[in-house]
Design a protein around this nucleic acid. Structure first.
Lengths: 206, 206
DNA sequence: ACCTGAACACCGTTCAAGT
DNA sequence: ACCTGAACACCGTTCAAGT
């Protein structure tokens, strides 16, 4: 029997596995407990409440992010953090909405913010703007990471039905482009290019 | 007794009011029904399931966005849409996580996307890039709109405890700036300035 | 067509009891 | 200290019954 912090990790691992396999709704105290091999009430010494379990789940996901060596150039580092977040979102899509909802004040979150601060400082962003730009970068990256499902759901039939009787001149003009399939990964990279350009602009303004 | 689509609106209004007052968890079929003055099962003719009710809630919120007159300059229009979204998020913070989770293929969503497409076309964004830039703008604005709580939760005491024993050079260097209070509204406007600059850059690239 | 009331199979959490 | 089993007050949803 493992004890101490190891037991909590075991509980969070079980919760994450269930979220990955069957979605967030399937993450019940009873289901998590069963996966650990114990009754639901046995979780409470390691998790204050279900809310605490979900906070732990967010920490578990953030801990998976790989932070690049600070010796590398700052744009590479920012891109790697962003890609790492996108990949984590791909592995654990059900958990992403929680990342946006729960406060980012855990040690796992601070670790990532620190890496972004360092990259922005190296980029030459003025001290007074680093915090704001970090929030912009995080919002941007998390927004893309969470939005996979939101954009993917547009199937052609549904779309056509929706646009039929309406007066939507811009949609009509862009009809050809909107039908063309787009790669989420390529779009993310393009957005990342734009973001890097924006950071350089901010840095050179000072 | 109202009937037809009017009844569904009544149900969604009740659900929104409960979400605003007591949070999303308080939006139960029974609570919504009680507010309408009816039993829980009486909701099912107007709402396929609780999931359908939540989708309707997102539509209800999107319908609140005020779309500017197309005669105005495109930057004003984009800013107004963004501000309108931020205000709606302020009125209905509990609903925001749903906006990110649920697919954006409803008539209420298309209406907003159409307005953004028009603004981007007027800005001179190439047809082939309009869809991608719209997704960037939406992600950006929704990200800020949803992130109010995420950033606000950092209270000084918690922060200090978190940063105490750790090795966080960038946090230490920025200590003074990080302590200074920042206005979410002002920060949003600054981010909006950056976003407008980015759109101009993309437009002028063609 | 719309609504009710009872019922089913679940939830998170408390509590007394066990080891 | 950790775990169990029963219990409580809830959920969403089905179903037969009413009007």
């Amino acid at each position: 029997m493992p004890e101490g912090p190891g037991r909590r990790q075991q509980v969070l691992d079980a919760a994450l596995a269930i979220a990955d396999e069957k979605g967030l709704d399937a993450v019940t105290m009873r289901a998590v407990a069963a996966r650990v091999g114990v009754t639901a009430m046995a979780l409470y010494p390691h998790v204050r409440s279900k809310d605490d379990l979900l906070d732990g789940l967010v920490g578990r996901l953030l801990a998976e992010l790989s932070l690049p060596d600070t010796a590398r150039p700052w744009p590479d580092r920012l891109r790697e953090i962003a890609r790492s977040a996108l990949e984590a979102a791909g592995r654990h899509p059900a958990v992403m909405p929680l990342v946006f909802t729960r406060p980012a004040v855990t040690p796992e979150a601070v670790r990532v913010v620190e890496a972004i601060y360092q990259a922005l400082l190296d980029a030459g962003v003025p001290d007074a703007e680093v915090a704001r730009v970090e929030r912009m970068v995080s919002t941007f990256v998390l927004g893309y990471a969470i939005s996979g499902g939101r954009f993917a759901a547009r199937d052609p039939e549904q779309r056509r039905a929706l646009l039929a009787g309406e007066d939507l001149p811009a949609h009509r003009r862009l009809a050809a482009e909107l039908q063309a399939p787009h790669s989420a990964k390529a779009e993310f990279e393009a957005a990342l290019d734009d973001l890097m350009g924006l950071i350089e602009t901010i840095a050179s303004r000072s």
